[in-house]
Simulated scan of single mutants.
Amino acid sequence: MLSFTPYENPTYFGILAIALLPIVIGLLCKKRFHWYETIISIFFLVLTFGGPKLTQGYALIAYLIYEVVLVWLYTSYRKHKNQTSIFVGAVILAIIPLVIVKLTPAIQNGQQSLIGFLGISYLTFKAVQTIMESRDGVLKAFNPWFFLQFLVFFPTISSGPIDRYRRFKKDYDHVPDTDKYLQLLQKGVHNIFMGFVYKYMLAYLFGTLLLPKLQQQALSAHGLSWSLVGVMYVYSMYLFFDFAGYSLFAVGTSYFMGIETPINFNAPFKSHNIKEFWNRWHMTLSFWFRDYIYMRLVFFFMKHKVFKSPKTTANITYIINMTIMGFWHGVTWYYVTYGILHGIALVVNDWWLRYKKKHQKQIPHNKFTEIFAVFVTFNFVCFTFLLFSGFLNTMLLAK
């Protein structure tokens, strides 16, 4: 049985084009074939999790049954009651599979969990946010069958972008008018074309041609060197173009299906500060952490008066939020340090913005200061990406 990682093989794009054609024709005729979309979703799931990845396929099936039943039970309960302990229990149960998958390599010397599969993080984010929105009362109606469709929407299943239940449902139930859909097709073609440029040209240049050579030179130097500086910048470029390219493929494919999946990247290296960076980088993940962890922790701390100052509350929550994001990437010192550094940077950033506002007459603001702000932000981000890459850990082990 053939198996393809999404958007990694020219054959995959050929099959994708053929599979999307009936959907495009249907939407141009103002019809949405939900039954056909279900069939091709199953087909692409088999392509992704079949063959050598069949174990992951079984894990995916078990996971989907578990999460759909769990969320269904909670939303049914929420119609009549709203006990906090039940809500917390439902959230914990929803994230337990992901926690097991993330902890297993750290506990078992790098061995992967048997219940893990490609994309488990993003499906978990969707399940947790659905529980939370049900708790908040903004999600009034829950359909288990639609929820399953929402979870396994194949263009985004492996690495996002992370959509929201109500936003997705609005598009899923709606057929865009002809002019609107033609615009979506145009943007879809543009995104897929740019995805090829990003992933198969620029990411290949930085990640395949340049990065290994610089890493070898840096290892040979046995310490700090200009090659290590090169690794920092080249890896940052590779990480951006590879992931942004994938995201463009996912968003472009979604547009062909009449689904306006949110974009994930918006020129992040043009950011003037670290908060702006997180409003531009992996945006759906950043906004998910903001809405479902940061804001809820702030509300909890303020409600229970854990800290006297709102500024202290925000600062502590920044660090907790970004540390959790670091742990989400993996239970290693470099992922956790990456998260903590970004949390501290957000704290410093807020302090600086308050200070600058208070002393705006004394602090110059011109084209040079804007360029300098972008330069500082870019270099900080690249340094943390060097940590994130794990290459420094490799250098330490090589000594």
Score class of each variant (00 low, 15 high):
T5I: 15
P10T: 13
T11K: 14
V24T: 11
I25D: 06
I25Q: 10
L28G: 05
K30E: 13
F33H: 11
W35K: 13
T38M: 14
G51P: 10
P52Q: 08
P52D: 12
L64D: 05
I65K: 02
E67K: 00
E67T: 08
V68N: 03
V68Y: 09
L70S: 07
T75S: 12
K79T: 14
I86D: 05
I86R: 13
I96D: 04
K102H: 12
G110C: 08
G110V: 04
L123Y: 06
M132D: 08
S134A: 15
V138R: 11
F150P: 07
R164D: 02
R166S: 14
R167E: 10
D173H: 06
D177V: 05
T178P: 00
D179S: 10
L185W: 09
G188D: 06
I192E: 03
V197A: 14
Y200K: 09
Q217G: 12
L224E: 11
L224C: 09
M232G: 08
Y233F: 15
F240K: 01
F243C: 04
G245I: 01
M257W: 00
P268K: 02
I274L: 10
N279Q: 07
S286V: 01
F287A: 00
K308I: 03
T312C: 07
T313A: 06
M322Q: 10
F327Q: 05
H342I: 02
D350P: 00
L353W: 03
Y355R: 09
N366I: 11
N366A: 11
E370K: 13
L386E: 05
L397C: 08
